[in-house]
Structures are given as structure tokens and as C-alpha cells.
Design a protein around this nucleic acid. Structure first.
Lengths: 308, 308
DNA sequence: TTGAATTTGTACTTAAGTTACAAAATGACT
DNA sequence: AGTCATTTTGTAACTTAAGTACAAATTCAA
């Protein structure tokens, strides 16, 4: 019976919508459930990671309700029955569990092992980031960049200055006049030359670097739009007009390269991708020109990342 | 019965080992199973994402074996029974499914959507990479870097030159004299100055860039160790002494920033992390000096990535 | 307080997972 | 080549879990 209802026609939404939503569905219905069902919800929330190992009878017993009540609870959440509920819950949790639980305590004996640590941190950081990002801010940032006459990107220190370079490189490919700076004084000076049609994009994982905060102030004073990709509640994010905020857990392990670089890079990629789609035709022409200039240079043609 | 065997004592390994390993367990036992069990394995591999919706009878029918054979297959994989097998499989897949199944075909309407595309590509690429990397090569690369007197890092074009900069920055923090170059001529020139105690680290997503291949040849000729992070079967990987090879699927979507940058960056991080652990004491002292130089500069103390 | 609507539990049905055991197949050793 | 031990596999029975039907209890409104 429960199998009939999910034949080929319904397959598409299985992995996707299903996986993404159970826990938020739980939050959504919370409070508006019938009293006994709410009891089940409370128990589930309190013991969320052991539910998928329980039978319906165990859960009913633990929440002190009858088994049909548990089933009704599952249906209130949009599941077909208890089985589907357990499955979806397990999938939801797996995503966050996989790497967060990885043996963080142990030292990496091999490079392969270190790679697992690194990937684990990336996954974990990416998940945290995705939940924190404000879609509205991202849209604002996109619009600002699209409408800009000139884009100035700044970042100081290894990680951030790499991101700034990369950002300038990405947006340049999309036909946006962009420059990267990573010298404290140059940042100040160039920011002072910006005007209302310009955009200043700032990378700073601390959000407190004087030169960066200063640049944001100067640029704002001259009417330029300012975007930061940084920590919330910092001087920087309180100074710029479009703060993109992510508070990422830094691994206390000083030997581990900080994973937030990857998260910031992903944000940059997403922004660049949206801008590219938005300015589609212009972008295609630009990429064509860049590619042909390179092809002329080293004579290769196959599909490959533009510019190695 | 099946519940008794996983009480409190066994809980720890549930999320972790369990979640991480079913699919690789499948690879591991592949080929050494009894013939009918192998048939189940084959069917599972071919229909991996629909298994968790099937009953044991359905799977047995589909693979044309008896239900106990299916159970034996599950046990060969280290599961308690079919139920646990389904659960663990669902969890394993959830991780990759979440982003991979995101509507790749559709254009990203919002930046948030674009972010899902980007993250999806990163996850997919990371998984592919992890399987392809040769642990031995990584170890060799680590040893070479540790033993080096001087490290020269080169990359040409947006992505690779960013990686080169970042690599030089990372290893410099670990007390290794390292320089990044991204000018075709400079690469050649500097490579010619290397000797047997030196290491040349090359990033190239194409593996065919003349300047990079040329540098590898020159450096080898003068006895330096050469490491490449690049595609297999390319001129570059056939020239260097320690080729780290990954063949990553490039998304044909020209608007999407290439995900291989993230994968390469992760490899770099893993290498840096291992080198850091290997040269622990020296590294701690180095990081201390860097930090105190920065603290003296802008007067902050809290735990933050070194150098923003 | 009485009737309709909703909520909940009891008892039952169906079906899924698991086990026991015997039959078949494989492989080693005389 | 034949016999015995070992492994592999399937049949049939068993156990337990999930889901349903319906009636009892509760809630709320008039």
C-alpha cells in the first residue's frame, strides 16, 4: 500500500524536497499539533538522532501515546507513514553528521587522512554557511555588482587577498571592470576614488582589520556601494551597506588550514555565476573573446577552464 | 533481537563509521562475494538510489535470488540486517544526493540557487577527487616538501595562479622558504635556478600549458624534485617526478566557475596540514612568530585565522 | 447540556524482516 | 573418479513491525 503511492511518477521529488525539509517541517508544525501529537514532536526533538533506530511501538511508548498517534504525527509532517518518516529523518541527519562526527580528535597520520579532515571541515562549514546566508543580501549584492561601473575588490592577509584576486579575476571575465588590491594603503587610496556608480567588495574573515573597515568608510562617504563577505557583528559588517554575513566555526587546530576560505570562495562563485546568468549575452561575448585570445596564444581548443 | 544488539554501548559508531562507509564497503567486498550475493551487489550498484524504498522481497525478486541471500549480502557488508542496510545506504546517499540532485538542469534564478549549484559541484568534485588520488603520491609529495630547501610554486591563469599564491603562502607559514610565480618567463627562469634540494610545485588544470611543462623539464634537468597537481595523461603529469593526478569532470556550463579549483585547494590544504604535523615543533614556533608580528601590528589577540 | 467535530486509543490485519533447517553445489583428498 | 567436508542457497515457518478500522473519549459551540 505505502509502496503504491510512490511509483515512478513521484520519484523526482524524493531525494530533493524530501531530504531537505523534514526538520524545518518539524519546526513549522510545532505548536499547532493536537496535544498528543505535540507530545510525540517534543520527544522527537529531544531525541532526534535515536529516532531512526526505534520502532513505532518504542516511540509511542517513550512519548506515552498510542501507535496510531505516532502515525498521525508522521502524516502531519507530510510523510506517508512511520517508515518514510524514519528514512527521511535519517537522511536529514546524515548530511550534518557525516563529517562533523569524523574523528576530529585524532591526528592525521597520512596525507589521505589529512584530506579527510580537510574535506570534513569543508562540508561542515558549507552546511553552516548555507543556513546562515541571507538570500536577500545576496540578491542585493548581485544587483549592485551588475549595475556597477567599476568593481574594486580588497582583502588583506593570505586568505582574503587570495579571495580578492580571484574575485577580480572572476568578474573581469564577465565584462565587469574589476581590480583587486591587497595593500593597506592602496586600498584606502583607491577607495577614495570611488563614486556612486562603483562597488567596493571586501573580504575579511575577522571583520575588524583597520584598513578594510577604513576603506569601507571612505567608499561609503563618497557614495559607492559597499559589500562585505565577513563575520556578523563586526565593525566591517556594521559599516558596509550590503553585509553578507557568515559566522563560521574556526577549527582550533592551528595546523589545519581554515575552512572558511572554501566557504567564502563558494559564495564568490555563486555570486559570479548569478551575475553571469543575469548578463548572459554580454558574458558569452566576453568569454568568447577571452577564449579566442588564449587559443591564439597557445593553440588549444578543447573544452577546458578558461585560462588554466 | 536486532534492537538488542545496538544499545547504548554501540551508539558512538552509529553516525560515524556507519554513515561514512557503506558504499566503500560495497566496493571492498565486490568480487569476493558468493555468486548469488554478488548478484545482489550488482543490482544494488546499478539501482543504488532506489534501494532504500524497496522491501527485501522486492530486491530479492529484482536480483532473482531468495530473501535470505539478500540478508546474507547485507551481513557481508557489516550490517545487522536488511533494515540497517537500507538505513545506512539512505544516509550515505543523502549526503551526496542533497546537492547533486538539486535541479541542475534549471538555470539558477536566485543567488541562493546558484549557491546550491556551486556547492553541488564542489561535493561531487570532492568525491570524485577523493577516489582518484593516490595516497602514495601524496606521501611522496609531502616528504619532498618537508625535505626541501626551497619551494617554488607556479601556476598560470586565474585559477592556477591563485592556487600557486595560496600554496606559497601556506608553506611559508610552516617555515618553508617558498615563492609563487605566475609569469611564464619568470617561471622558466626561476626553475633554471633550482637544484637537487629544491622542489617545484606546479598547478595546471589543463596539464598542457607550455610554460608549466617547460618549467618542469628545466627543473628536472637540474635535479630538482617536481610535483604537479593536474590531470593524468597530460604532458605535465608525464614530465614531473611526483604527479598528483585527478581527472575531474568539468561542468560544460560556461557560466559556472570551475569546481576543480576547490578540489585543488583541498589537496593543497591536506598537503599543508600533513607537512605541518610532520614538522610540528618548527611549525608552532613559526606560527607563533607570525601571530605575534601581526598582534604587534594591529593589536588583536583572539583566536582568528592568521593574517585575516 | 447536548450535538457535531475532532482527537485518541484498542483490537485487528497485513506485510515485512528474520530464522531454522534441509537441499544443492563446490572443492579437497583419497 | 568417488566420497566427505565445507560452503552456498532456497523453502517454509516464525516473529515483529507498520498500518487500519472503528469505537470511545474529548473538545468546542450553540
Amino acid at each position: 500500500m505505502s509502496e503504491d503511492s510512490r511509483d515512478e511518477n513521484e520519484l523526482p521529488n524524493r531525494g530533493q524536497a524530501a531530504v531537505a525539509d523534514l526538520i524545518s517541517a518539524l519546526d513549522r508544525v510545532d505548536g499547532q499539533l493536537a496535544s498528543r501529537e505535540q507530545r510525540v514532536a517534543d520527544y522527537v526533538k529531544a531525541n532526534i538522532d535515536s529516532i531512526s533506530m526505534m520502532t513505532i511501538a518504542e516511540l509511542a511508548g517513550a512519548a506515552d501515546v498510542s501507535t496510531p498517534t505516532v502515525i498521525r504525527f508522521c502524516r502531519s509532517l507530510g510523510c506517508d507513514g512511520f517508515k518514510e518518516f524514519k528514512l527521511r529523518l535519517a537522511q536529514n541527519l546524515a548530511v550534518s553528521l557525516q563529517y562533523i562526527q569524523a574523528d576530529v580528535s585524532e591526528e592525521p597520520a597520512t596525507v589521505e587522512n589529512a584530506l579527510d579532515h580537510v574535506l570534513g571541515a569543508i562540508y561542515a562549514t558549507a552546511n553552516v554557511m548555507r543556513k546562515q546566508l541571507s538570500p536577500e543580501r545576496l540578491e542585493e549584492a548581485k544587483e549592485a555588482i551588475i549595475g556597477s561601473r567599476q568593481l574594486l575588490v580588497a582583502g588583506i592577509g593570505g586568505g582574503s587577498s587570495m579571495l580578492a584576486q580571484e574575485a577580480a579575476n572572476r568578474f573581469f571575465r564577465l565584462g565587469i571592470t574589476s581590480t583587486a588590491v591587497n595593500d593597506s594603503y592602496l586600498i584606502q587610496m583607491r577607495s577614495a576614488t570611488l563614486g556612486p556608480q562603483d562597488v567596493l567588495l571586501l573580504f575579511s574573515s575577522s571583520g575588524e582589520t583597520d584598513a578594510i573597515v577604513g576603506a569601507a568608510k571612505v567608499a561609503s562617504a563618497y557614495g559607492a556601494k559597499t559589500i562585505s563577505i565577513s563575520k556578523p557583528y563586526t565593525r566591517l559588517s556594521q559599516t558596509v551597506s550590503i553585509p553578507i554575513e557568515v559566522d563560521l566555526p574556526e577549527d582550533p587546530d592551528i595546523f589545519k588550514p581554515t575552512a572558511s576560505r572554501h566557504a567564502y570562495l563558494a559564495i564568490l562563485d555563486a555570486l559570479a555565476m548569478s551575475v553571469a546568468y543575469e548578463t548572459k549575452d554580454a558574458t558569452i561575448e566576453n568569454l568568447r573573446r577571452i577564449r579566442s585570445s588564449l587559443t591564439a596564444y597557445h593553440g588549444r581548443t578543447g573544452p577546458q577552464p578558461l585560462g588554466d
